[in-house]
C-alpha cells in the first residue's frame, strides 16, 4: 500500500510539471511579448509607464533571458504566490482568482457527489430489475443523457427559465447576497442556486455512470460468488448489496479519476452560459482580452487541483480494495 501511494504520488509530479509547461506555453504563444502588451494596454487607458519600470518588470520576468529561464522564473514566482499581473484588471492575478477557483471546486465536487449519489442507486435498481419496464425507461434516459452537450442544455434551460419561470439570468447568488461578505445566510443562498448548474453539469456524467453501474452490477450478479452467497441462505437483498454491489462499486468509484476533469471541464463552459461567478467567465474574459497571466494561472491551478483530487481519490480507493491494498493485482 505504501509503495502504491508513493508510486502514485511520484507519477503525478511529471503530470504537474507538464501542466505548468502547457500553461506557460499559453502565455508564450500569442505574438508579441506580454510586456509590450502590458505597456500598450496601460497607454490605451491613458496611463504612462516609464522605461525604468519596464526594465524592472523585464528583469522580474527574466524576459531578457532564454525561454527556459523565463519558465523557471515564472514557475518559482508562481509557487511563491506571485502569479504575475492581470493586464486587463491591472491587479495581481492572485487577488482575482482565489474565490472563483474555490467556487468552481465547490460546484464541481457537489456535482460529483450528486452524480454518484443519483447514478449508483439508480444503476443498481436498474440492474436488479433487468428487462422490466422501469429498467427500460432508465436505460433509455441514460442513453440519451450521455450524449447531451451540457452547455447547450444550459442554454435551453436558461431560455426556458427566463421565458416561462421568470427566473433571473442564472448566477449563484440572489441580488441581496451578490456582493455581500461571506456569511452562513450567503452560503445557504448559494446552495439554493446551486442545484440548476449542478444538474446541468452532471447530466451526462450521471447518465454515463448509471450505464456503467448497471452493466458492472449485472456482470457481478451473474458471478458464482453471488450464487454462493444465496446458497449460504442469505436474503436476496443482503446477498446483492453485500457482495456484487460492493464489488461493482469499485470500478465505478475509480472512475472518479476521469470524472473530475470532465466535470471541471463542463463546469467551465456551463458557468459561462449560466453566468456563475466561478472560473469560467473570468477565464473566458482573460482569454478574449489576451490577459495571459490570468488565463494561464487559471488553467494551471484548475488542472493541478484536478490532478490532486484524482490522486486523493485513487489512494482512498486503493485503500478500499484489498486486491491493491495487499499488493495483489493492480
Amino acid at each position: 500500500m505504501r509503495g502504491y501511494i508513493l508510486r502514485r504520488v511520484l507519477q503525478s509530479i511529471p503530470i504537474l510539471i507538464g501542466i505548468s509547461i502547457v500553461a506557460f506555453l499559453i502565455i508564450q504563444l500569442p505574438p508579441g511579448d506580454y510586456l509590450t502588451v502590458y505597456a500598450s494596454n496601460l497607454r490605451s487607458q491613458g496611463e504612462f509607464i516609464g522605461d525604468e519600470e519596464l526594465e524592472a518588470l523585464k528583469a522580474q520576468y527574466a524576459l531578457d533571458k532564454p525561454v527556459y529561464m523565463q519558465y523557471i522564473r515564472w514557475i518559482t514566482n508562481f509557487l511563491q504566490g506571485n502569479m504575475g499581473q492581470s493586464f486587463y484588471w491591472n491587479k495581481p492575478v492572485s487577488s482575482l482568482i482565489g474565490e472563483r477557483i474555490a467556487l468552481s471546486m465547490v460546484v464541481s465536487i457537489l456535482t460529483l457527489i450528486v452524480t454518484y449519489g443519483i447514478a449508483i442507486p439508480v444503476g443498481i435498481y436498474s440492474s436488479i430489475k433487468q428487462y422490466t419496464w422501469s429498467d427500460h425507461v432508465i436505460t433509455l434516459i441514460a442513453f440519451i443523457g450521455v450524449g447531451l452537450p451540457s452547455f447547450l442544455v444550459a442554454l435551453i434551460v436558461m431560455y426556458l427559465g427566463v421565458k416561462y419561470f421568470n427566473l433571473g439570468a442564472g448566477g449563484l447568488f440572489s441580488a441581496d447576497y451578490l456582493d455581500a461578505p461571506w456569511s452562513f445566510a450567503r452560503v445557504i443562498d448559494m446552495l439554493k442556486h446551486m442545484w440548476l448548474p449542478v444538474i446541468v453539469i452532471g447530466i451526462s456524467g450521471t447518465a454515463g455512470t448509471i450505464r456503467v453501474m448497471r452493466a458492472t452490477t449485472l456482470d457481478e450478479l451473474s458471478k458464482p460468488y453471488v450464487e454462493a452467497a444465496r446458497a449460504r441462505g442469505l436474503s436476496e437483498l443482503k446477498a446483492v448489496l453485500k457482495y456484487p454491489v460492493r464489488v461493482a462499486l469499485n470500478p465505478i468509484l475509480s472512475t472518479i479519476g476521469w470524472m473530475l476533469p470532465t466535470i471541471v471541464s463542463g463546469e467551465t463552459l456551463v458557468s459561462l452560459v449560466l453566468g456563475l461567478p466561478t472560473t469560467g467567465p473570468l477565464l473566458y474574459r482573460a482569454l478574449i482580452t489576451q490577459d495571459m497571466f490570468l488565463a494561464a494561472s487559471f488553467i494551471l491551478i484548475l488542472s493541478s487541483l484536478t490532478v490532486l483530487g484524482t490522486l486523493i481519490s485513487d489512494i482512498l480507493l486503493a485503500w478500499m480494495d484489498p486486491r491493491i491494498r495487499f499488493g495483489g493485482a493492480e
Partner: peptide
C-alpha cells in the same frame, strides 16, 4: 449446502 466449480470465483474478491 453447495460448493461450486470455480472455487475462487465462488468467493467474494472483496471479503475475507
Amino acid at each position: 449446502s453447495m460448493i461450486f466449480q470455480e472455487p475462487r470465483a465462488s468467493l467474494s474478491p472483496l471479503h475475507t
